[in-house]
Structure formats: C-alpha cells, structure tokens
Design a protein around this nucleic acid. Structure first.
Lengths: 377, 377
DNA sequence: TTGTAAGCGTTATCAG
DNA sequence: CTGATAACGCTTACAA
C-alpha cells in the first residue's frame, strides 16, 4: 500500500505518497540550495546564513516534517549517534538501573543505545564488541568486562571511547566506573563485628572479575586488620554470581563445619542462595547464622529475611559512565587520560543479620563453641 | 593518534594506518570491480559470480577484516537492521526477559535492538516512537501501548512492522502478543474458591491499559459465573501498577471493611504493596487475608510470603513478537493480516494464599462473619 | 559472468 | 552569504 512506486518521474514530485522529506525537498520548497538548508539546520553553521532565510528554512522543514536521514549523516560524518551497551544479562536486575542511568543522560544529547547480552560467555562478549563496533557505535559501555580482557584493551587502544561499569579491567588504560567495594566490605565487616560476630566466613565471587577479586581482597585485609582469624575452611569460592552457587558454597561451608556465625557473600544472589541452603539444613537466618549481600538489588528488601547488604549506586554508575563518554565524544583531540571513578556505597542493615546466638564463639579466634552447624550435618 | 590524515593521495593506499577496509579495498586486492565483490559477498547474488573468484573474494575480505559499512548499506537499501524496543521502564523486572526474548531471536538474523524507556508518560511514548522511526528502525516492539494509542495506530497504518507485547491496543490493526489473562484470572479465582474463599476483593489496574482492563473484566465475569457476589466495596482501582498504589488500594479496601478474605491483585507489584499495607495494619498474609499477584516476576518466590501468582511467559512473549516481525520483515508485499497472539499462563501456588480463617464468611454472599478488618480500622 | 555508472541524503570544500 | 560539486560506501539496473 505505502511502499509502491511513488509517482512517475524519478527526479520528481515532492507531493508523492508518504515519502519522507529530504533536504532537497525543503530546499525546493524554500527556493534555495540544499547546502544552504543544511547550514541553516545545523546550529553550528546557522550563523553563516541570513537570519531571514534561516528562519524560513526552519519553518518549512517543520511543515514538511523533515527528519535528517541518519544513514546519510552517518555515512558522511562517521558518527552514528549510537552507543553500545554490553551487559552479561539484562535479566539480572542489577543491570537495568545502570542502563537507565546511561540512557537517561545520553538520550537528551541525541544518542540512542544498542543493548546486547553476553551471558558471561567469553566468545559472546568478543562477538558483541565486534558486532557493535562493526555497527559503528560512537562509544561503548560494558558491564561484562573480565579482569583480563583483550578485546576491551584493543578497543581502547584503538581509540574507541569505552568505559566499563560495575567491573573494571586490570588494564588501567580502559576507563571504568565502579563502586567502592573496599569500603563496602569494610562497613559490612564492622557491622558484623559490632553485632558480636567473631567467626565470619565468606562466599567469594569469581576471582577473574574485579568485583570478585576486590571484595575478597577487602575481606581478607579487613578481617586481618580487625584482628579476626580466617582459616581456609571459612571461605568458599563461587564460580558464578548466582543463587545456585551461593547454595553450593553454603553447603560446602556447612559440611566443613567452620563454625562461623556469619557469612559475608560477595553479592545478593549468592546470599539468597546461601540463605536457602541454610533453610535446607533446618537452620535459620539470622537466628543461626547471619548472611549479608552486596549490591542491594531490587526486591531484596522484600525477601525473607530482608537482606542486610551494601547499596551500590546502580543508576549513578550508569550516569557517570555516560557523562564521561559524552565528554570524551565532544573532544576533538584523541583523548585524555583514562578515568577511573569509584562511587560511594552505603550499608543497609535489614534483618538477615543479628547478634550471634548465646553460646557462640565470642573470642576472636577461639575454639568456636557453636556446633549447631555440625549437628545438622 | 588514529584518525589523522591517512597517507597522501586521496584515491590511494589501502595500507593506511587503521582505516577500515571498504569494498573498494578488497576489490583492488582481488583485482576485480567493487560490484563484483559486492555480489560475491551477498549470498543472494553469489551465484552470479565465478566460483573461483567468489571464494577469492571471501578470502581476501576476511584477511582485510572487511566489515560492511552499515550506514552506506542503510542509505542505499533503506534497511537499518535495527529494531526499536520501547518499554515503560527497563527497571521493572517483567520487561527484561521480554527484551531478551526479542533480542535472542533477532540477533542471529543480524538485527540489533535500540531500547528506550517512556516512564508511562504519554508524551515520552510519542517521542520515543518518533525518535525511533526517525532513526529508521526496520520494526518496533512496544511494551508501553495504551488501549487508545494514536501513535501506534498511525505507525501501523503507515506500514511499519510493529507489535505490542504484554499489552495491546484497542485498535485491532496493530499486532500484539499477550498472555492469556482471562484464563489466568479464572485459574486464580478457582484456586481461591477451592481454598474456601467466598468474599474476594480485587485491586484492579489502570483501565486504560489492556492488562488492567482484561484482568478486571475477567474478574467480574468469572466471579459472577462462579456464583460469587461482588459489591463495589470489594474493588479498588490502582492508578499505576506499583507497590505504592497496591498499598493505597489495600488500605482503602480495609477502611471500607469489605470483609473479604482474599484479594486478587492485577499484578505482583500491587500484591506486594497490598501485603505491606496488611502488615501495616497488623494483619497477616495469608493468615488474615490471602493475596494473589499476576506475572510471576523475578524474586516473588523469595519474598515473604512467597507469592501465589500467575506465571506469564515473559521470555516467550518476546520471542513470539520477534518471530512475527522477522516474518513480516521478509515479506515482499505490504503485509498480511495483523496477528494477535495469546500465550498460555500457569497458576503458581505459593504461600500467600491459604484457606480463610475459621469463622470467616462461608456462604457465597452471606453477611461476612469476618470482622477483623473492621476491628483494626 | 563482469564492469559501468547512477544514486541513496548528507556535509564539506571551494568558488563566486 | 550562497551555490555548485565532490565525496562517504554501498547496491543495482544496464551494458558488455
């Protein structure tokens, strides 16, 4: 119906069916050359044009509902006004707010975002980055970075504006916006200690990701600094940041009989898994063991028990990344030093933490009197 | 560093710094004309080319890491291989799985998705649609449709392939993929009745949205069919599908002293709000009143109490929408009849529903003995 | 089977 | 200040 051959002449007839107006159309209507129209429409070059005719052009282009053809613009200028966002999985609710943060600052500047998922798959991440750059995105924000990420390093080296969010690469030449995980872990540990916990275990995340590495590192340093003794039986390593791994690690911890009264998990999902494992063994949280998360993802305030966690500024991380890119995009020269931003976090105390049971180990590292873990074993 | 003036001659030198290879580059390398390369690279026209030289072209283009310039392609063909997804808010966890469904079927076909948020704002939806079509997306999937949606109708009429998901427009000319809400409500009501509930209230959603309208409609029809009596004091209308409105409506219901023993909410978020309102009044769920949701969004299995709800096929809705578009995109002619798909739902019984208290109203519409609601008032 | 050439809608350079 | 003109990289009649 719509797309049929419009009119007869090929050069002709602006009055055709519903063809989208082009520069040529408004030029003809105003009675000037297309280049004049182009200049009049571009704020940066409008000053070259007679006031009167410029306004006339604006009028007519509005009447004709002129919309610049992005493909033509892009072909000519090599800028697509599109940015790529790559996330492990948009379905993981920590990412959507970050994405919104990015979009909300970019959209007013005329940028739209192409969102792709990688599912934590090395190859898919490489493919995603490659696809996006083949598509000519002007910049990329990537939430799926691994500590060793050749693709990302190459991309940055090559000059594409790129920021990682939430995680960072070991290669300091690729910019990043993350949260203050070191401080987060410290706050949480302090909270636990204040409640009276002395034997604290951890479920650490994947050490190939900066989140996993930094949080575990902070755990080690801070427990030591606080005078707590941590033995190998008190740490479990999750292979992925999800509930299943949280469950598995918690079971492992229980089986080992570490006698810990609290478990600091590297993220909320691990914590949820840990709590469910506890239940599976007939233990209660926080009654028998306190469990803490990290991220404060959506809904963890509604779960049973409401999770004590560290709130990271999801939305703010996205915003900051976008602001950085915007700045980078407006520079003429190659680029300044890479930026590494660390945003503040907040301790959110809810109900998954409580003072340890009476009779639990009280000394910093004494023989843990608590044996309920072994009992259920 | 990278983008400087490459080489001297303008016609010249493929060996330049890091300039991206073009058709011309591979043509020169192979020693044929660009049109030959173009044909060789296009599966649809490859048969026109000598076997030998076609493979040679493939080889060289790989060596040179040739990637077609999407802007040029798009300018020439009027196809962007990009689709637009418009959602009210990506942060609402029912949408991400739908988005993934769309992307997962579209990506293998070379399409990428531009995702934009409208925040339930009429104008922003119009703006989003306009922006996307200005950007030349090949098709759109929109999750933010209202029942009366002029923009969408116009878009469809104009020939742009478009599907609404989760919701639909009253205008049957715009295709849709939704879930079987009628059946969902029926299943839920049957569940409640089977538990022994007779006085069942509802917190209905926004009636300008098909979801709100259909679910409420189904509530009315089915309660009637089941012989239940519904009075005006048993229905609350939420202005938005969120927790705050759920809370407000529940409080309203309680204030009215409807004496209901169960509340069917139009979605999970309303249910969560309702439960929290109950708690605020010192009532328990499901002890004092059963509450049900709709959607089975992420995490509602972990909340307290785990929510009895209707599971809609989030991911499947996205997939189906994408499949439809794909088909539509490959048609040469204008387009077939619009599609209206209704996907099956599933009742998920968890712990927010239970038999009514002993002493509660038992008769279909008798004077409800239950008065705890009034008591707390 | 391959080459020629036009043109998609812009912007940028160069004259006037 | 404005107009002509040449690209940008690609596809596609039309010729050969």
């Amino acid at each position: 119906m719509t797309g049929g051959k419009p009119e007869t002449g090929k050069t002709g007839s602006a009055a055709g069916a519903s063809r989208r107006a082009t520069l040529k159309d408004v030029a003809r209507a105003v009675g000037v050359h297309v280049s004049t129209v182009s200049r009049a429409l571009n704020p940066a070059t409008r000053h070259l044009i007679t006031e009167e005719i410029a306004t006339r052009v604006l009028e007519v282009s509005r009447e004709l509902n002129y919309r610049p053809n992005p493909a033509a613009y892009s072909l000519r200028t090599n800028r697509s006004h599109t940015i790529g966002i790559v996330v492990p999985d948009i379905t993981n609710s920590i990412f959507p707010p970050m994405i919104r943060g990015v979009e909300d600052v970019l959209a007013p500047h005329g940028y739209a975002a192409l969102v792709v998922n990688t599912d934590l798959n090395r190859e898919r991440e490489a493919a995603a980055i490659s696809t996006l750059s083949a598509r000519g995105v002007d910049a990329m924000v990537v939430a799926s970075a691994e500590r060793e990420d050749a693709e990302l390093s190459a991309l940055a080296k090559q000059g594409t504006p790129v920021v990682t969010i939430n995680r960072r690469t070991d290669d300091a030449s690729v910019s990043s916006v993350i949260s203050d995980e070191i401080e987060g872990v410290r706050l949480m540990l302090a909270h636990l200690v204040e409640l009276g916990h002395r034997r604290i275990a951890t479920i650490a995340g994947n050490q190939n990701l900066s989140t996993g590495q930094r949080r575990y590192d902070a755990f080690l340093r801070n427990t030591l600094a606080m005078g707590l003794h941590i033995g190998p039986e008190q740490v479990g390593f999750a292979n992925a940041f999800n509930e299943a791994e949280g469950r598995r690690c918690m079971e492992e911890l229980l089986a080992r009989g570490s006698g810990s009264t609290a478990v600091l998990c590297a993220n909320d999902r691990l914590a949820i898994g840990a709590i469910s494992a506890l239940r599976g063994r007939g233990l209660s949280c926080p009654g028998d063991v306190s469990v803490t998360g990290f991220n404060d993802m959506a809904m963890v305030d509604c779960i049973d028990p409401p999770l004590t966690t560290i709130r990271i500024p999801h939305y703010g991380i996205g915003q900051a990344a976008a602001q950085f890119l915007l700045q980078r995009l407006n520079e003429t020269d190659g680029g300044p030093a890479p930026l590494h931003q660390v945003l503040p976090v907040e301790l959110i105390v809810r109900a998954s933490t409580a003072a340890p049971r009476k009779g639990s180990a009280e000394g910093p590292s004494g023989d843990p009197a608590v044996s309920h873990m072994r009992i259920v074993r």
